[in-house]
Amino acid sequence: MACKGNWVCFDCRVSTRRHTWKGITYYCPDTIGMEGDVKCQHCGSVMKFIGPTIRVPAKRKIKEWQQLREEILAFRQDYFRERRALMVEAVHEAKKNIEKLKRRPFNKEREKLIREYERNLAKYT
């Protein structure tokens, strides 16, 4: 379903809306705070996407704009920190499974599973 998402320029305290998908920030939370190809009409800098549901403060409310900027930055840091922790956990789990499989007697299925785990491991490293 289509809707309009907010793009903001924190320096000028302006926003613009562009068509987007309604569930974008739910299914792809890493898009919040991401820079895109939308440019600010006032200063020409790249605007940040904050999604269709986050309220944009009025231009004159400087403290609210600063708070929004800090919240977006904190969200992105927390999101990527959590994502990194999950990646480290997945790498550890894959290495553990490879070692467990290598201790088993040789057969083709075992070798196939080891190669599959190693391919998945290569994605993370």
Rank of each mutant, 00 (worst) to 15 (best):
A85M: 07
S45N: 14
K63Y: 10
R84S: 11
L86M: 11
A85H: 06
V91D: 05
P52A: 14
Q41Y: 10
F75D: 04
K61M: 10
E89A: 12
W65T: 00
E64Q: 13
I50F: 03
I62G: 05
M87A: 10
C43R: 06
Q67E: 15
L68M: 05
D78T: 11
Q66G: 13
F80Y: 12
A58N: 13
I62M: 10
H42P: 00
F80N: 07
K39G: 01
I50T: 02
R81T: 13
A58E: 15
I72W: 01
F75L: 03
H92S: 15
V56W: 03
V91W: 04
R83V: 02
H42Q: 12
K59G: 08
P52I: 00
R84P: 02
F75T: 01
M87H: 11
R84M: 07
R60F: 11
F49R: 01
V91K: 11
E64I: 01
Q77W: 04
L73W: 08
K63N: 14
A85R: 09
R69E: 15
W65S: 02
K61E: 15
I72N: 01
T53H: 10
D78L: 07
E82M: 07
L86W: 08
A85D: 09
H42C: 07
P57R: 04
M87S: 12
R84C: 05
E82N: 13
E70F: 08
E70I: 02
R55F: 09
T53P: 03
K59N: 15
Q77T: 14
Q41N: 13
F49K: 00
L86R: 13
Q67K: 13
R69H: 15
C40R: 03
D78Q: 15
E89M: 08
C40E: 05
R60H: 15
R60V: 09
G51R: 02
P52C: 12
P52W: 00
W65R: 01
K59S: 15
Y79C: 02
E82F: 08
G44L: 05
R60W: 10
F80A: 00
A74G: 07
E82W: 06
L68S: 03
K39R: 11
H92L: 08
E71P: 02
W65G: 03
P57F: 05
L73R: 14
R60G: 06
A90W: 01
K48R: 14
R84G: 07
Q66P: 09
E64P: 07
K48C: 09
L86F: 09
V88Q: 11
I62A: 10
V56N: 03
V56H: 01
D78W: 08
K39D: 10
E93I: 05
I62K: 14
I62F: 10
L86T: 06
P52L: 00
C40I: 04
G51N: 03
T53E: 13
Q67L: 12
G44T: 05
E71C: 04
K59D: 14
I50M: 03
S45E: 14
C40V: 04
